[in-house]
Design a protein around this nucleic acid. Sequence first.
DNA 1: CTGAAAGCGCTTACAG
DNA 2: CTGAAAGCGCTTACAG
Lengths: 326, 326
Amino acid sequence: MATARDVADRAGTSTATVSYVFNNGPRPVAAATRQRVLEAAAELDYKPNAVARALSAGRSFSLGLLIPQVRNPFFGTLTEHLENVARAHGHLLLIGDSAGDPAQESAHIGSFIERKVDGVVLVSLLAEPAIRRFSSAGVPVVALHPVPDGVTVSTLSIDYVAAAEAAVDHLLSHGYKSLAVLTGPEDSPGTAQHRAGVERALQAHPKTTVRYQAGPVSRFAARDAVRAWFQQKRPPRAVYCATDEQAFGVLFAAWEAGLKVPEDVAVMGVDGTDECAVTIPPLASVRQPVDEIARRAVDVLLAAPDREAARVVLDYELVPRTSCGC
Amino acid sequence: MATARDVADRAGTSTATVSYVFNNGPRPVAAATRQRVLEAAAELDYKPNAVARALSAGRSFSLGLLIPQVRNPFFGTLTEHLENVARAHGHLLLIGDSAGDPAQESAHIGSFIERKVDGVVLVSLLAEPAIRRFSSAGVPVVALHPVPDGVTVSTLSIDYVAAAEAAVDHLLSHGYKSLAVLTGPEDSPGTAQHRAGVERALQAHPKTTVRYQAGPVSRFAARDAVRAWFQQKRPPRAVYCATDEQAFGVLFAAWEAGLKVPEDVAVMGVDGTDECAVTIPPLASVRQPVDEIARRAVDVLLAAPDREAARVVLDYELVPRTSCGC
DNA sequence: CTGAAAGCGCTTACAG
DNA sequence: CTGAAAGCGCTTACAG
């Protein structure tokens, strides 16, 4: 591979000038000189070595994304959007899938830090320790989930409590008298929020029976978790799921048990992934503005580093579809 | 952040020794010296800078994965497996999602090369040009799809022709007399193979009516593509899809049209993703050994670089489920 | 407007 | 067994 040295020699300039041309700065280059450099570079098929660039510039032009599971369509969509935005800013996206395993999450944190990512978009299993490690390494972080008040990070998310309340209120306004609530793990950052929202909704619908269930965010685990409910003589009339991914498993369990959705049991998810439109039946959900999340997350990370931590709350959208009874 | 220089000073050694300790070589270090280095490193919370390491060692300890779409569960699963294997080998996985767009694919190829990835796992839209760019940059590649004979790359895949034949033969052995075939884009690497397999299967089942349809590998595009079929007076009795992702859309279209699967129309996919187990109804498919693919792909990439291109053919497994009529 | 040179933080031949 | 030093390929103050 040709190096800046080769290009400089051929163009009769210094490597500094080659750098100025390829980075459009920080110093100006005379048009004629720039021309010679670009020609030499083209002739030699020169591509700047991003590794060397990162070492000397002190930034890697890469962002890290740490999520529990790429296969979850919400995170898949987020990944796609973030990658587009990152690329538009000249950054590469490194992705770390923790598979719901703190040890894997920890390994990814280490390799993101070692590789000097310029920032991290975080959906963490253990928000606090993760955030601390990044911030003590000087890596900017934006978390996409609720974070305890003491911790200083930028945060970007919908109001989960309000979203849960709106969803459950919508469900119960159909007159359903029994509700089941399926959330992510007991100790995961969002679970308490979802439950608080449910409780708030219940105030407007007293006499509703409720049961709660926590579990891994996976359609398979969700199916297994609710199977027992659906075999009872009186299955819950409505199920609220903290994620679409889990709702997919609930739809399956209902089908498997011979229950019709929404006639026998209504189902609602959260995330509003595109996949909801082609489930059987189509899944009602609360849509998160994933495109806006991606755009603003990158903005926050690449903003002036001295800018203080921002807590941005985004709008959600209730999307009724067949599964809730509409 | 502490550097090797800091550690060396504190331990009273040279940076060379620090390097030998952290890399377990290439030169031996006396036990007492190693001890001092490790203590100093722990005290300073030293983490080697991976960027500097990559520049001087000439390898980045990262692998690239270039796929058309992370959201497709097959690629999602592949990503998860590859990441695990890569991590076990001390490598990070960079992922490039081309979103079915050659321009994006091309951009990712450029950034993988610039960032000096040690190897690339490729599922390409335009196999040939992609492979050429990597090989002219000296980056090892393993392709997971069929590649024209002239091109020299390592290849790792099932025999798509045989898989398609087995799947279609299985479908038609139920006595279905009309078949629809939905593949990826007309010019994508696998489409010709799937069709050839279908044609071979048809020889054993003459008098079968067949229609072919090519389109984007997306459940949404697939739904749209087959809608018209399902509104005809005589919809196809069986549908073979080149990917599970497309089959998911076909299941939805059938439901939407009021057709029962498998009673009115049988459906079969290819890839054998876990998600097939929870579709409505469960989707018959041809399973690809994704764990083995991931393991061997990394082996091929990290093997001695002088090893010649290998063309490995892996076993597939026919997995009947409700959707095909079993 | 541009060059010579130091430096980013490692690794690895060269010496001993 | 270990150190001093060159070098990986860039960027960026320092000079002019």
